[in-house]
Design a binder for these strands. Sequence first.
DNA 1: ATAATTCCTATAAATTCATGTTGATATCGG
DNA 2: CCGATATCAACATGAATTTATAGGAATTAT
Lengths: 151, 151
Amino acid sequence: MIRLSTKGRYGTRLMLNLAQHYDNGNGHKAVILKNISDDERISIRYLEQIIIPLKINRLVKSIRGAGGGYILARKPEDIRLSEILHALEGNCCLVECVEDESFCEFIETCPTFPIWKNATEILKGYFDSLTLKDIVGMAEKKSKQGKTKAR
Amino acid sequence: MIRLSTKGRYGTRLMLNLAQHYDNGNGHKAVILKNISDDERISIRYLEQIIIPLKINRLVKSIRGAGGGYILARKPEDIRLSEILHALEGNCCLVECVEDESFCEFIETCPTFPIWKNATEILKGYFDSLTLKDIVGMAEKKSKQGKTKAR
DNA sequence: ATAATTCCTATAAATTCATGTTGATATCGG
DNA sequence: CCGATATCAACATGAATTTATAGGAATTAT
């Protein structure tokens, strides 16, 4: 299967959760992992592991101690999905050789290399076109439609 | 990482190898796994496992016994990359829920679901646009360019 | 018969996924 | 300062999945 790892999926939901709780005015109400864990039904322990690379790549800021938690390092409209996946996965390429050409010595003659490379570019392009704000917006719109229908 | 499994990668190379040895006139010169193993540097034992789903999905035909081997079940121009990956991976979706919506009970409200779904559609579209013949053609062109350059 | 080759099943090795443990460090409110 | 709250860090563990190898049975051409 062509698969996005759980790190990528859970990390995206984590960031999206932070985006939904982002306070545009003051931007200082940190969200604790416990809340994200409850919302997203992902164990805190695993979230702790996942958030490390997000912090290293300066996509989130941590506030330690009581009243602490995490907040987005930038506004939701300034964070792209591609950045999140890149932080979590190191790269978002379908196969190792696309990112690191020294990975395989037969790239020059490999007939499949250009295929995976193109496919990777296409995917990257899509993920690069979406910001956290876009995605939150899509979800809100969807939820409204749902309510209308349910009536 | 968003990753294509080795089954998908190796299986594609396997099929491409069969395509390169496909005899359009008679179509009856079976290729043995030993040769593919040597060409592609993938262990025979592993190729044996990989080719099973390709056989089940009628993308290759097997000829048993001495002088046997494998041949494409159809012409290279009639086999799409999407079919190969579908046979090998069961589905080519980035996350389980895209193929099987019962996989997760929160799909309705999941803000990431439409993202993975769109991305999957985009990828599928690309893989569906390529036949084995196209890919062999690309590789031959590339190899000629290489020779010209080397001169 | 013999050699070649697919077919079938088991299993080893490596990696990913997820939780648990222990404890250190930082911060807030009283 | 004290105690509660959270992040931070380093491991450890076990289940599940992916990756790869192995042994031998079944089939067929010569």
